[in-house]
Amino acid sequence: MKNLITSKRRDVLKTMAGLAAGVLFPKFLTAEQESVKPMDWADESINYNPHEHTWGMGVDIDKCIGCGRCSNACKIENDVPKEPFFFRTWVERYQVKENGETIIDCPNGAIDGFEKHPESEDVLRSFFVPKLCNHCEKPPCVQVCPVGATFQSADGVVLVDAEYCLGCRYCIQACPYGARFLHPVTKTAEKCTFCYHRIVRGEEPACVEACPTEARIFGELDQKASPLHRFKRMNHIGVLKPALNTEPKVFYAHLDMEVK
């Protein structure tokens, strides 16, 4: 019942926003209505309809060994600049000490893994946390993009149109997770795409492929028979910064309260 109310309210809000948009820019109201049309891919070997999928990722913190194979594979697969300032995914190490202080580090995004931390004395608990774009259901980055250069595809994946991006960097400011950066050469915003080029061809994202311990689970959110659905059934789940109401689609099992 509660769900029904919230979803109805959301519809009303959407309609109101749509009406406001329609009054100002009539073209988009019609565009919105046509949006069930399937996608004609330029590469004709692709047989993928974005409307038939909803993608998400599960991350089991207890399984992560901090080898950084994921962030390494991501840099290779997506031609992310190798310099240590640009990451689509990275792994953080948390060390919660006896005195309550928390030390976090992430040397070069963990693309070479971790070494023993110099301050690892008196540690109460410690663990690794892989991070990436949360592909939020309500993405603040898409909300603020002035021109529609970053958008949510019908399958829930948040993408950036490099050809259309102005490089204003408002989306980078709006992302609460630090998941975006400005590509130093193209001067456009960049982020994780869930390896969109792979998933439309039935492959898993490179980080999932490279994870040796199955700490990352990729799959459908709306299908009952999906590894991600099972992951959400078997674990207690948390998301990052739930108070911001971004509704992330990256779900963490065994999430610690120190993780920001």
Binding site: S35, P50, Y196
Partner: peptide
């Protein structure tokens, strides 16, 4: 397909 260029999906893949 929404408030974006459809070609952006082709670019992404």
């Amino acid at each position: 397909l929404g408030h974006f260029r459809t070609g952006a999906l082709n670019d992404a893949v």
